[in-house]
Design a protein around this nucleic acid. Structure first.
Lengths: 92, 92
DNA sequence: ACTTATACCGGTATTAGTATCACGGTCATG
DNA sequence: CATGACCGTGATACTAATACCGGTATAAGT
């Protein structure tokens, strides 16, 4: 086996991750945020919907900068399960 | 063109990024750190040497956790150029 | 000298991330 | 209803990330 396919857990984590990003985007449009982060809108959509569950580090970093999020909090929120994500949502 | 190849700047950023990780690893072996982060040693080596210039976000997050690094500082250090990386190195 | 451990390197295989294109839905306006 | 602008979506194309394998080099321990 040369590259292990993503596990269901990783895909679920990707969905949580995308949900956090979408929630952080708020009223702003995909296109605006994607442009601010230097991505294509389709890429942002895939990340938000969980269809790209493990995006590149610098992609996430640019996105977090565009959204005003902390990478550490973001990683903690979706690494530790849905409860952490909920807390993240409360805290902002 | 469907996926733009990595620019030389991105590859250089990857080299800086890898250098920071290698410096943070210190005396510990690649194998130990890779195991702690849940990666293969080859992957860690590629990231450290800059041959994988844009690793996945959760890969970096696991690595940062294994090394005790902040993702935000890490991103800032290699996004803003070599001087920021040097400052990061001083600060630890 | 032999073994062991670590790291580097090249090649290979397979999956996944990212961008471009073309399409459907929505809403405002004529 | 027609037209257009904006937003999201599906299909497709192509590159990069990740893992496994074998080989090489160097240093430490026996």
């Amino acid at each position: 086996m040369v590259r292990v396919p993503l596990t269901p857990e990783e895909r679920q984590r990707g969905e949580r991750f995308g949900a956090l990003l979408r929630q952080a985007r708020g009223e702003r449009s995909m296109i605006e945020v994607a442009a601010a982060a230097g991505l294509s809108a389709e890429t942002l959509r895939k990340i938000e919907t969980g269809r790209a569950p493990t995006p590149a580090f610098f992609t996430v970093a640019a996105l977090a900068a565009a959204l005003g999020l902390s990478l550490d909090e973001l990683a903690a929120a979706c690494a530790e399960g849905p409860s952490a994500a909920a807390e993240f949502r409360r805290a902002g």
